[in-house]
Design a protein around this nucleic acid. Structure first.
Length: 436
RNA sequence: CGGGGUGUAGCUCAGUCUGGUAGAGUGCCUGCUUUGGGAGCAGGAUGUCGUCGGUUCGAAUCCGGCCACCCCGACCA
C-alpha cells in the first residue's frame, strides 16, 4: 500500500478524551474514531489489525473443532423471556421497539439464541458433541464506558458454545477451548495468565478468565511465578497436559486473593495488573433445561445437554495488545497482527535515483508477498520515521540517497531499535522469510 | 446512578471573572528555500463560540433549560 493514497490520519497531538496509552495511540495512529460514548468507527489501519486478530482467533477455534456460524446482532425479547434473562439483565441491555411494537434487543451475548437453534435441530446423543461459534458485534450499555475500545459499549466478540451429553464430555470441550485460548494468545504475541474465576451456582473449577499482563490493566492479579517459566513457544504447542499443569498453579484476582492463606510462598508470588481478554466457563444445563435443549440418550431417555461458553474480546484485544506493547514513540505490533510487516521509507522523494530504488524494492516486496506500506510521500524524513514508529510497523526499510550510492538500505527493528545496513536483496530475503 | 469537570478552527488551547468587530500554536492550501528524526520564510483559507431560550443598544462572555463528552466512585461476560 502506498502511503500517499492511504487514508491514515495520524496526529501529533492527542485528543483530550483519551487517557490511557492504547486509546491515545489508537487515535493518534488513525486506527479509530469515536462516534459516541463507547462506540467507535474503525479506520483502515485499525480495521486491518482487527481483522488479523479475528483471523488468528478463527484459526484456533477451527483447529479446536469449533464450527463458525453467524448469528444476528438483533434478537427477539421473547427468546430471552424463556431463559428468564429478559428481566434479569437490566439496563445494560439495549432494548428496541420495532414498527409493529414488538420488543427486540441488541444482543449482549448469545446463549439463548444458540440454545434455541440447537434445540430446534438436534434430537439424538449421536449428534453430540458440538461446538459452535461466531464472531459478531455485541452491545452492552455499560454505565461508564472507558479506555477506548477496551471497554466499549459496542464491541467485537468471539463467543463459542459447546454441547455435550454429559459432564465428562463438557469437561473435554472445556479443555479443548482452554488449549485453543493458550495457543491464540501466544500467537497474538501475548502472555496470558489463566485465572480461576467464580464458577457461580454450578461449582467446581470450570471457569477461567484469561488476563493479559499490562501495567494499565483494570484487575490486580496474584500468581505463581512458575507461570513465567512457560515460554511463548511452549504456549504455541499447548496441550491437555500443559492445561493440567497451569490449572494446578495458583492465580487469583485481587478480590479472591488472601495474602494470609496464599498457598504460594511470598518469594514465588507475583503481583501484576491484568486485562481480561477471555473467559471460558461451564454452566451445565442452565440454559438447555429451561429452553428445552435435550437429546435422546443411548438408553432412550431425554437428557438436557451440558453446555459451556467461551468468549474472547476481539476488539478489546486490539487495545490490550497496545497496552502490552508500546513505547514513547508509539505502538509496537507483534508481527502476527501488524497491519503491515514492513514500512518502506523513501527518504528523498525528489531524488530520482533514490525514488527509483525505493519503487523497485517496493515492487519486489509486493511480488514476494510481503505486506508493505510504502511511504512515498513528499515529506521530510523525520515525518516518515515518526509515522512508521507511531503506527508500529515491525520492520522499517529505509532507502536514502547515501545508501543508494553504496548499494545498501537500512533495516530497522521497531521493537529493539536495532538498525543495520544491508543490501536491498538481503532485506527482501529477510522479509520474505518472515512472510506468510 | 452519585460526585466532579469540559464544550471556541481538523487537533491542543487562550479569551469568559470585568459584555463592545473571533484569537494563538499546530495542521491544511500556495510559492520559494530546504531535505537523515515531526524544517524556515512569505502569503492564504478555515468558526451556527455544543444547543435552545432569557437579560441587554449589544452576549463566546451574564442567567436558565437541555444535549454531548471526559474523570472519580459504585457496577461490569
Amino acid at each position: 500500500m502506498r502511503r500517499s493514497v492511504l487514508f491514515l490520519p495520524t496526529m501529533k497531538e492527542t485528543p483530550t478524551e483519551a487517557q490511557i496509552a492504547s486509546h491515545r495511540l489508537m487515535l493518534r495512529a488513525g486506527m479509530v474514531r469515536q462516534s459516541a460514548a463507547g462506540i467507535y468507527s474503525w479506520l483502515p489501519l485499525g480495521f486491518r489489525v482487527l481483522k488479523k486478530i479475528e483471523q488468528i482467533v478463527r484459526e484456533e477455534q477451527d483447529r479446536a473443532g469449533a464450527q463458525e456460524m453467524l448469528m444476528p446482532t438483533i434478537q427477539s425479547a421473547e427468546l430471552w423471556r424463556r431463559s428468564g434473562r429478559y428481566d434479569d439483565y437490566g439496563k445494560e441491555m439495549l432494548r428496541i421497539i420495532d414498527r409493529g411494537e414488538r420488543e427486540l434487543l441488541y444482543g449482549p451475548t448469545n446463549e439463548e439464541l444458540i440454545t434455541d437453534i440447537f434445540a430446534s435441530s438436534v434430537r439424538s446423543y449421536r449428534d453430540l458433541p458440538k461446538n459452535l461459534y461466531h464472531i459478531q458485534w455485541k452491545f452492552r450499555d455499560e454505565i461508564r464506558p472507558r479506555f477506548g475500545v477496551m471497554r466499549g459499549r459496542e464491541f467485537l466478540m468471539k463467543d463459542a458454545y459447546s454441547f455435550d451429553l454429559d459432564k465428562a464430555g463438557a469437561e473435554q470441550s472445556y479443555l479443548q477451548m482452554f488449549v485453543a485460548y493458550l495457543r491464540t494468545f501466544a500467537r497474538l504475541g501475548l502472555r496470558a495468565v489463566p485465572v480461576q474465576a467464580d464458577p457461580g451456582a454450578i461449582g467446581g473449577n470450570m471457569s477461567h478468565e484469561f488476563h493479559i499482563l499490562a501495567d494499565t490493566g483494570e484487575s490486580d492479579l496474584y500468581f505463581d511465578a512458575a507461570f513465567e517459566d512457560y515460554t511463548a513457544e511452549q504456549m504455541l504447542t499447548a496441550d491437555a497436559g500443559m492445561v493440567g499443569e497451569l490449572r494446578g498453579l495458583y492465580a487469583a484476582a485481587d478480590e479472591k486473593h488472601d495474602g494470609a492463606n496464599c498457598p504460594v510462598p511470598e518469594s514465588r508470588l507475583r503481583q501484576r495488573k491484568g486485562i481480561e481478554v477471555g473467559h471460558i466457563f461451564y454452566f451445565g444445563t442452565k440454559y438447555s433445561a429451561p429452553m428445552g435443549a435435550s437429546v435422546t440418550s443411548s438408553t432412550g431417555e431425554q437428557v438436557a445437554v451440558e453446555m459451556g461458553s467461551y468468549g474472547i474480546g476481539v476488539s478489546r484485544l486490539v487495545g490490550a495488545i497496545i497496552e502490552a506493547s508500546h513505547d514513547e514513540k508509539g505502538i509496537i505490533w507483534p508481527e502476527s497482527v501488524a497491519p503491515w510487516k514492513a514500512a518502506l521509507i523513501n527518504l528523498r522523494y525528489g531524488d530520482a535515483e533514490c525514488t527509483a530504488a525505493a519503487d523497485g524494492l517496493y515492487e519486489k516486496l509486493r511480488n514476494a508477498g510481503v505486506e508493505t506500506i510504502y511511504d512515498d510521500r513528499d515529506e521530510r524524513p523525520g515525518v516518515k520515521f515518526a509515522d512508521a514508529d507511531l503506527i508500529g510497523i515491525p520492520w522499517h526499510v529505509t532507502v536514502g540517497p547515501r545508501g543508494v550510492k553504496a548499494g545498501v538500505v537500512e533495516f530497522k527493528n521497531r521493537a529493539t531499535g536495532e538498525n543495520q545496513e544491508i543490501t536491498p536483496e538481503a532485506a527482501l530475503n529477510r522479509l520474505s522469510a518472515k512472510a506468510g
